[in-house]
Simulated assay, not measured.
Amino acid sequence: MKKYLQIALMLFCVLVVSSCSKNEDALEVDEAWKIENDEAFQAQIFAPGFQQLKSQSNEGFILYKVIKEGEGKEPIYYTSTVKAYYKGSLIDGTVFESHTFEEGAPSKFEVSGVVDGWTTALQHMHVGDKWEIWIPQQLGYGASGKKAQAAGQITILPYTTLIFELEVAEIVKQ
């Protein structure tokens, strides 16, 4: 019986030590980064032309400004698939992803398959609409961030405010 107790105790110690070890895949950020991004988002609330849209998940709101109003009248649903041009940047202006008109064809995606901030915006947009959107971290990549998936891509740190210029080109499927 004493032997089994010793084995159980050793297994417990191994589990405790392994759970305390640092996760090498986790993205880390200092508190100053989080504060800087939160403050930038809060300051944007008072910028001329920006309005708030409550998120579908009730986790907060996005800020948006209409750059161009399109001719489309057909609604975009959570289950829709759309094509859009966009440019995503950080609060310092660094572009982390871009599919602009100048770069070629629009990107195709399901509205339900993007970050909550985009899902919220798209369900209020129509074909031809072009908006500037500010997405707070909790409606973007949150506390986990997003690692670069390929060479040339930028890692998005946890607690990052995302800024997009988004233009709906087409509704592929309702």
Results as ranks from 00 to 15, higher is better:
residue 71 E to R: 09
residue 119 T to P: 00
residue 26 A to L: 10
residue 146 K to Q: 15
residue 172 V to L: 08
residue 75 P to G: 06
residue 99 H to C: 03
residue 132 E to F: 03
residue 67 I to P: 05
residue 98 S to H: 04
residue 101 F to H: 08
residue 97 E to A: 14
residue 38 D to R: 13
residue 153 Q to Y: 00
residue 137 Q to V: 00
residue 73 K to D: 15
residue 86 Y to C: 06
residue 135 I to D: 00
residue 100 T to H: 04
residue 138 Q to S: 10
residue 156 I to S: 08
residue 48 P to A: 13
residue 133 I to C: 02
residue 117 G to K: 00
residue 161 T to E: 01
residue 11 L to I: 11
residue 62 I to K: 06
residue 102 E to G: 14
residue 95 V to E: 10
residue 69 E to T: 14
residue 38 D to Y: 03
residue 145 G to C: 11
residue 147 K to A: 13
residue 153 Q to S: 12
residue 138 Q to V: 11
residue 173 K to M: 09
residue 5 L to P: 02
residue 5 L to R: 13
residue 153 Q to T: 13
residue 77 Y to G: 01
residue 57 S to W: 01
residue 168 V to G: 05
residue 75 P to W: 07
residue 39 E to L: 15
residue 37 N to M: 09
residue 145 G to K: 13
residue 26 A to M: 13
residue 71 E to C: 01
residue 101 F to R: 13
residue 93 G to S: 09
residue 70 G to A: 10
residue 31 E to P: 07
residue 100 T to Y: 03
residue 76 I to C: 06
residue 36 E to Q: 15
residue 101 F to P: 00
residue 169 A to M: 06
residue 27 L to V: 05
residue 71 E to S: 14
residue 149 Q to P: 01
residue 76 I to W: 01
residue 140 G to K: 00
residue 70 G to W: 09
residue 92 D to W: 01
residue 158 P to C: 08
residue 39 E to N: 14
residue 76 I to P: 02
residue 173 K to N: 11
residue 99 H to F: 12
residue 11 L to G: 13
residue 156 I to N: 06
residue 128 G to N: 11
residue 122 L to F: 06
residue 34 K to Q: 12
residue 15 L to W: 04
residue 3 K to S: 08
residue 62 I to T: 07
residue 139 L to Y: 00
residue 144 S to C: 02
residue 20 C to M: 13
residue 121 A to P: 10
residue 84 A to N: 04
residue 106 P to Y: 05
residue 37 N to R: 02
residue 70 G to D: 03
residue 94 T to G: 03
residue 80 S to W: 05
residue 152 G to N: 09
residue 32 A to C: 04
residue 16 V to R: 10
residue 173 K to C: 02
residue 61 F to D: 15
residue 173 K to I: 01
residue 48 P to M: 08
residue 58 N to G: 05
